[in-house]
Design a protein around this nucleic acid. Sequence first.
DNA 1: ATGTTAAGTCAGCCTTGTTGACATTCCAAG
DNA 2: CTTGGAATGTCAACAAGGCTGACTTAACAT
Lengths: 165, 165
Amino acid sequence: MNEASSGDTLLFLTDEQLRQGIEAMFFAYRGFTSAPDQILEGMDYGRAHHRALHFIARVPGMNVKRLLEILGVTKQSLNRVLRTLIEDGLVDSRVGTSDKRERHLFLTEKGRELEARLSDAQRRQMRSAYRQAGPDAVAGFRQVLEAMIEPQVRATYASLREGQG
Amino acid sequence: MNEASSGDTLLFLTDEQLRQGIEAMFFAYRGFTSAPDQILEGMDYGRAHHRALHFIARVPGMNVKRLLEILGVTKQSLNRVLRTLIEDGLVDSRVGTSDKRERHLFLTEKGRELEARLSDAQRRQMRSAYRQAGPDAVAGFRQVLEAMIEPQVRATYASLREGQG
DNA sequence: ATGTTAAGTCAGCCTTGTTGACATTCCAAG
DNA sequence: CTTGGAATGTCAACAAGGCTGACTTAACAT
């Protein structure tokens, strides 16, 4: 609500509107993570494992550096998670063919099973929300979310969509 | 928009669409929290302190039980945060008048200052996204988010909007 | 031969969540 | 008035998952 007091058309930018959006985002994110969290509790895994599984499933054969960029954590942090997934036989780490320094990550059958369970639960939750809100709302939802992604991260996000959009 | 396999109109519910939404949510949430996080880093506070300040600012005089419900954490977890905020003179905890077991929480001047800094930063971020996406998208965004909030939490969310919608 | 990159590891720290146990204070019902 | 239950606070211990710093190994690239 800066210059141009054009009243009506900018009402969606009032502080109160923004605050409601902020709170909706806070509560919705809890709902967003709750289904996979419930599956994971009791297992020795957490949200971090879920994220790793998700993106390895999404881009099979991706190397560690790429996964680090996507997740936005340090390699020490990722390594703790990745190690247990490899030890437990959910993830397969293969030496690169062209560049042997790299490790390429794949899900094993066991890994695919867990990832599928988690994804199904999360999609079910998401599908329900989408269905309630309808297609036009979903389009707007996506537009706002994409505008919220930080510029440095946007390239990473976009690259995930290429080739499988 | 419920069942009724009307083909085209349900394309927004495909697994691929849902997965994109899930990933957008993941990356967007990082953008959502980044501005306040940057302000807090270096201070002795974290995201949990921000959340407490936010809701105390939102509902001045609220008691601890209510705040616990909103935040969805254990009292031990909240207490650690709340104690430092009180000790540092950002939050004022007053014994209830009608029921003296309760403590009513208020921001001090100092607390209001920090909360305002954090809120301003987060609203700036949100406003930018809203502006890019436009009012119709924002309406859809809100609809989907609200549908994502878990039923048990929805009452809490709704009660925040009453009286100040 | 040298420098850089990818990956992994060890050690230690912080925040923020969790349980469980327990004390205090106060309201309300018997 | 006593007693049970509710609201709050606190201690201790623990776990997940972030972080930094330092260092190794292997492989690529010049």
